[in-house]
Structure formats: C-alpha cells, structure tokens
Design a protein around this nucleic acid. Structure first.
Lengths: 208, 208
DNA sequence: TAGATTGTTAATCGATTAACAATC
DNA sequence: TAGATTGTTAATCGATTAACAATC
C-alpha cells in the first residue's frame, strides 16, 4: 500500500474495473487475476495491480483478487458505498434519455430532480419526477441533499446553470453542453462531449 | 513544423480548439492568441502553441493566429474539410436523442442511417431517416459510403453490432454501450461512457 | 514443494510547462 | 523601433510497463 497521491488516470479506471467486477460477481465468479482483468478491459496487468495497490493490499499472491471483496473496496474508494442523489438540468431529448439510465447507475446514484427553464415543460412528469423550474434549483438541491449535477442545457445556458449549481454547493458536475464552463477550483467538472469524440475519430480515417 | 508523430492527447484537443475558433469566426473575430485560447479552454498557452505547431506554422509572431485560417487548417487535419457520413445503431431513447444532435456536427458529419433490431421500430421515421433492420447494416454502409458508426445498443448486443460494423469496413466507432468491445487493431474505438464519468465524480465528493 | 500471481521498484515512455530566441 | 507573440527547446512532471522478489 502506498500513500502517494492517487493519479487522475487511476481514478478514471476504477469505475471500469468496478463494472467488470460487478459482472463477474453476478456470474458468481469468485476470483480474478490482474491478467484476466487486463485482457478483458485492454489494460496492462501491471497497471491493474498498480492501480489497486494504491488503496491497499486487496489481492492474494498466487491466487488473485476475491471478486466480492474487490467490488466492495472499489465502491468504498469511489464513495459509492452509500447512495448519492443526482440532479439533471435540462429536460430536452438528451436529458430525458439520460434519466432512463438510472438503472445503469445501480443503487449507487440516482437522478432525483429534473429542472428546465421552459415553462411548457414545467410540471411534466419523467418517470416519477416532476420537471421543476430552474429557480427551484438551489432550494431543491439543499432539500434533497443532491451532490452531483448533470448539465444537459444548450451551450448558451450552460454557464448560467453551472453558476446556480455552484451556488447551491455542488462540487461535482457532468457537463454535456459543448462548452468549457468556469468554476471555482474546488468544483470538479467532467465533460461528456460526444461531438468532440466524433470529430476526433475523423482524424483516424483515411484521407479520401 | 515538426515531423514527429502526433500525440493522441493533441488530437483530442483539436476539436475543442475548432469549436472555440468557430465561435470566434461567427462573432467575426479576426485574430486570437494562444494566451486567449488557453484562458477560454483552460489550457496552458505553451500547450496550445505546441499542439498547433505540430501541423505547420499557422501563427504570426507578434500577432497571433488568423481565426479563419486556423479553422480551415484544423478542419483539414481532422479530415473535416469534406463531408463524413455516419450511422447510428440502436434507436432507443439515447439513440433518438443523439440523432437530434446532427446540427452540432455542423456540415462536417451527418447521421445518414439508423438501425435497430427491434421489429416494432423498423420502418419508423426519425427526422428524414427510416429505421432499418440490423441485417441491412453492411449493405447500407457500403451504399451510403458511411465511415463512422455510433453504437447505442444495450451492452449485450454491443459486441455483435461492433462485429457487423467492422465487417462492413468501418474503421472508427463511438461506443455508448458500457462495455469494452474487441476490434482489430486498425479500428479505432472511442467510448462515451457517462455512467463511468458519474462514478468518477463521486470520488471527488467529500466523505459523508 | 511447485506453480501462480501479487505488490513494488526501476526503467521507460509520453505529455506538459517554462523559458526565450526569433520575428512580425 | 518597441511590443507582442510565436515556434521550439529543454526541463519537468506524470503515467505506463517490465521485471522480479515476496509469498500464498
């Protein structure tokens, strides 16, 4: 076990390990080696072992890793051992599609509030949630103890909505709007930027 | 100008530069410095200059970069100076939401075919496209000269659909299914994995 | 014990940043 | 010319991988 700071790259791989391990767990697989994990996820086995050893000695030499234990440990590391309420800002088509992915988040996280500034949408139901107006963002986040915000609004509104989330005390944001938003240093923003991903892919095509 | 291989990290930033520069272009801004680009996109100015200098001497010392020229150059580098047809496999809520993002891809790329294996969906229209069955994937990709595939199917079907795309000669895939797919080495797969992104964000929250 | 696989170190590889001469 | 900003090198920083002793 090492005490050094954990690298961002390692943190980003943990959810990928977790998902794979959960699949093994469901299939009642008891143990797994770094080699097997690596083969399935296209990682180097050394990297797998190094990532995991940052957090403790989870494996057994000559045996591998106990799947159930490893799942529990990674959940703890990621703060997923207790429920995290999430909100969604922007109830357009993409937002509505995402709200259906609640079950992919498993018990760990759940979208528990949806906001939109379009008066026509306010009051509409998505599953068991009523779309609320943007000016209820701060109060609702406090009441429901929401910790993470997902931004699905058009780019012109993304900074404004970000400011509201920050004001409400949110420290973690997933931004689907194709624009870099400004936040205080203690707020972590991840980007889900699929038009960028597509444009990046174009680079790898042969010149026509 | 350097001749060294271009790093993956640089390629991933190019679409982000491009989007920002296009915004400047629309606002009729004529020139921009690496400092300004950096400030707006949270990049180091040295990094911006280094990224751009891989491809040629686009800037003018003491002046900065000409926005129109830089947009054109980055489009050329990314193969976005000609139209790239894209297909979407999986017409669930997420797939349908993505098909509405065509305009975000601007003239560069366009979803020109949608597939689903659900017989109930086949024949339905999404905008001007008819949902086609999966077994028309290969033929349609050839006929429409589609170069990029977006996978929006459930994880159990993702590898199967990937195999079809590969068989059709696709070399670039954006996978929304939360599973790592196996492909030949010459096929580039990017992942749009927002449940992972959310789980990563959880790490940065305070322990409760 | 023999075989397997971890945890960890050291080596390598790659990416970022600072600094500054070149030059518009 | 003076000021500004690039292009590029060198230094730094960080991440990946190979190798192997430790040990189950």
């Amino acid at each position: 076990m090492k005490n050094n700071a954990i690298s961002e790259a390692t943190i980003k791989r943990l959810p990928i390990y977790l998902r794979y391990l959960n699949r093994l767990k469901i299939s009642s697989v008891e143990k797994v080696s770094s080699r097997e994990i690596g083969e399935n996820l296209n990682f180097n086995p050394s990297q797998v072992r190094k990532d995991l050893s940052f957090f403790g000695d989870f494996g057994k030499r000559g045996y591998g890793y106990d799947v159930v234990i490893l799942v529990r440990r990674i959940e703890e590391i990621l703060n997923l051992d207790h429920h995290i309420p999430v909100c969604l800002v922007g109830a357009g088509k993409l937002g509505q599609a995402l709200s259906n992915y609640n079950h992919y988040l498993e018990e760990h996280m759940k979208i528990e509030a949806i906001f939109d500034q379009n008066p026509k949408k306010i009051g509409e139901m998505i599953d068991d949630l009523t779309i609320q107006p943007d000016d209820e963002i701060i109060e609702t986040i406090h009441n429901k103890k929401i910790k993470v915000g997902i931004i699905c609004v058009p780019e012109d509104n993304a900074q404004h909505v970000t400011n509201l989330l920050v004001k409400a005390g949110i420290k973690a944001i997933l931004n689907f709007a194709p624009i870099i938003v400004k936040t205080p240093e203690d707020v972590k923003v991840n980007y889900a930027d699929f038009t960028s991903e597509l444009h990046t892919l174009a680079y790898f095509l042969d010149k026509p």
